[in-house]
Design a protein around this nucleic acid. Structure first.
Lengths: 338, 338
DNA sequence: TCAAGGCAGGCAAGCGGTTGCCATTCCTGA
DNA sequence: TCAGGAATGGCAACCGCTTGCCTGCCTTGA
């Protein structure tokens, strides 16, 4: 077969080359390499040695084709360039690499449609998927989970394994913090409506404020980007409230910029709390008080759960893991103005 | 074949199902789907209709196995969580998605070894690769390029297609800027030694300073992370210089933090210029004067070059593309102290 | 001593496509 | 009228690996 590429890819060494070199059948080579117990130890050693010598690399596609296993896990995030995902990407990546799995990172661009489309299209090329902040409906998510091993991050749905960050307790901490600083009303700057985390945060703020008999208000929804910060800040100023908790740090940082533009002092006149402690929260100005989430760990845990599911045929031991969050107080919060 | 997974993956529809349903041979179906010109228009329409009806999804692995094409491009970055890569990731992603290619993002963890290892292991699963800031040696890079279509970003090597950012002119602009502010010595805060961009920037700074008969100095190397900023700042303070250009924004932002800790005013006492205009450069404190690079565009261009290479059997029309950079002046630079 | 069973290895049938080559059919121009 | 060729479709051989099943042989234990 001639190759019209300018590039000549040298023929790769296959299992058959090893078979020929060792005198064993290809099937034996295959077993020696992927099912150690099935062949004689001496045979295996021999085969492994020759394989190494020829620098054999198994062909993923051939393997996937017959076995159905691809040793690949997809990680779906709604926006790769949202720094919030850093930790997640990092965590999943490490854990997957350690387990010898490939890491397929997919940006779903905040679209549930794209998300499910990708998932169905990819079904044959991945062993499982980790969905970070899925935009899918409960029903759809549950349905997908029956077709493909899935772990959701920051999304809790019956029938779907998940790892979630304990925002409720974190938001409660944030609320207490603001209340202890003398703020008498807390405004929640809402993120995208189809975000589970957004609703979870809002609900826990409502609950926390209720415990203190304080009013809360919700503004938004705002797209979860820095750009939305301006609109959010303007809306906040308009309420004359002195403290807010923003859906995430991106939004909070955007607000900080706008508040300064409009001459409002933070934390002098307004206190701002973010969520996620993402990259940048510690060097923006003023530095941001925020809810730190162990998101990298979440990634690791999610991978562990998924792999456990893939390896043991047993169904999940636990349906979901909850990771603690805690408040990091920086410069953006202070006493309420008198 | 029974399936011991708790999950039942329904048998997927194959090309044969379509063949059966339409009465054509599998080969015809295959052609209708992947080589439109090769079959009668009516036939193709019929087949495509049935395929859609059965919601047929071609099996990537089977296809890759026979054709060698995987419709997948790997994008290697030295650290996914370095915001500098945001634009690159985004740009490559869009362009690849538009072309129907899958985007395999790989973190090489700053290791050339890992980089070449991944590349050789992946050879059969990808059609080509885009190497962002490769840590590979010239020789190795050139060798790899003969085995696999490659486009390097921010790295120029004979025999390897590349898209580079015109740092020389950018650094020159930065130098002029500092000089015009009255600074009489510019210090370069060096990044990793094995970074091509690092050397390129240093060389152009030397050249620019020489044109003005001014001295330059180089400190470092410092790892390209925010953490290294402290060491860099301390080293800078020690030189008593009043202006520096940092290898990248990450380093510059790290320095800003440390300089403030040590009570040095920026830009009052020291001016700092970063490189890349990455996420955060516009909201750190003070906001960072930096060299903006159209990195997202670089990603797009890199993908275009690679795809052109993959599609036309013709060798590259141009070996490398150079993208302009420009200085964005923000708050971190100011007149030299008298 | 011999049946039963375990171990190790080989055979061959795929997995789901792609593609070189061949057979038909029909069109074209001399 | 007929050779030559384009258009269209089918056949079958793979691609590289996995795996169900079979065979031969060696252990074991009654």
């Amino acid at each position: 077969m001639d190759n019209r590429d300018s590039v000549q890819r040298p023929r790769r060494v296959t299992i058959n080359d090893i078979a020929e070199a060792t005198g064993f059948a290809a099937s034996t080579v295959s077993r020696a390499l992927s099912r150690p117990g099935r062949v004689n130890a001496a045979t295996r050693e021999r085969i492994v040695a020759v394989a190494r010598e020829l620098s054999y690399v198994p062909n993923t596609h051939a393997r996937a084709l017959t076995s159905g296993r691809t040793e690949t896990v997809a990680v779906l995030v709604s926006d790769v360039t949202n720094p919030f995902y850093f930790g997640l990407i990092r965590g999943t990546q490490h854990q997957l690499k350690a387990a010898g799995y490939a890491h397929l990172l997919i940006d779903t661009e905040n679209s549930g449609e794209l998300e499910s489309h990708v998932l169905s299209k990819m079904r044959q090329s991945i062993d499982g998927a980790i969905l970070a902040t899925s935009r899918l409906s409960r029903r759809l998510l549950a349905a997908l989970a029956t077709e493909l091993p899935l772990v959701a991050v920051n999304r809790m749905v019956r029938g779907v394994e998940s790892v979630v960050l304990d925002s409720p307790s974190g938001v409660a901490q944030a609320a207490e913090h603001l209340i202890s600083l003398g703020h008498s009303e807390i405004v929640y700057m809402s993120g995208p409506e189809n975000s589970w985390a957004n609703e979870a945060r809002w609900r826990s703020l409502v609950a926390a404020a209720a415990r203190h008999g304080l009013p809360v208000r919700r503004l938004g929804p705002f797209p979860a980007g820095r750009m939305s910060g301006s609109a959010a800040a303007d809306a906040l100023i308009n309420t004359r409230a002195t403290a807010c908790i923003a859906f995430n740090d991106l939004l909070a940082i955007g607000m900080l910029t706008r508040l300064r533009e409009r001459g409002l002092g933070v934390p002098g006149e307004i206190s701002v709390v973010g969520c996620d402690d993402m990259f940048g929260a510690d060097f923006c100005h003023p530095t941001l008080t925020t809810l730190a989430a162990p998101i990298e760990q979440a990634g690791r845990v999610a991978v562990s759960m998924l792999l456990a599911r893939l390896h043991d045929s047993a169904p999940a031991t636990r349906q979901s893991a909850v990771l603690p969050t805690h408040l990091i107080v920086r410069e953006s919060t202070g006493p309420a103005p008198r």
